[in-house]
Design a protein around this nucleic acid. Structure first.
Length: 100
DNA sequence: GCCTTGACCGCAA
DNA sequence: CTTGCGGCCAAGG
C-alpha cells in the first residue's frame, strides 16, 4: 500500500461489525499523527465497498458531511450493528472503538 | 507549480 | 460547556 487513500480504505475494511474508528486513530494507525484531515479526504473518495459508516470523528460524533442523507444512513446502519447512540447523537467510543 | 478547500484534531480562552 | 485559532496533509482548479 503506497497510496494514502488505499491504505485508509484497507484499514476501514478491517473494522469489525459493530465497531467504529476515529479519523485520528486511523491516521495514527497509518503512522501519521495529526493527519486525520487526509483521512477524511480519502473517505470522500472512498468506493462503495468501504464501510465508511464505521468511521466517525473524535468524541464519537458523526461529522457533518456534504451528504446529509448519507449521514442519516450512517447512524441507522450503526444502530443496526449494535452501536448505541446518545440523545446528542454521540456513541460510546469506550465500548465501540476498535483498535487494530 | 501555487492557491483554495475540506467527512479533522487538540488545546486555549 | 461552547467558541476560536493554528496546524497537518491531500486533491482539485
Amino acid at each position: 500500500m503506497e497510496d494514502f487513500p488505499a491504505s485508509v480504505w484497507a484499514l476501514v475494511r478491517r473494522i469489525p461489525r459493530g465497531r467504529v474508528m476515529t479519523y485520528g486513530q486511523i491516521a495514527d494507525a497509518l503512522g501519521c499523527f495529526g493527519r486525520a484531515r487526509a483521512v477524511g479526504f480519502a473517505m470522500r473518495r472512498a468506493p462503495h465497498d468501504v464501510p465508511w459508516h464505521r468511521v466517525v470523528s473524535s468524541r464519537g460524533v458523526i461529522s457533518p458531511r456534504p451528504d446529509t442523507g448519507s449521514m442519516r444512513e450512517q447512524r441507522r446502519r450503526l444502530e443496526a450493528e449494535g452501536v448505541s447512540f446518545d440523545a446528542e447523537g454521540r456513541m460510546d467510543l469506550r465500548a465501540h472503538l476498535w483498535e487494530p
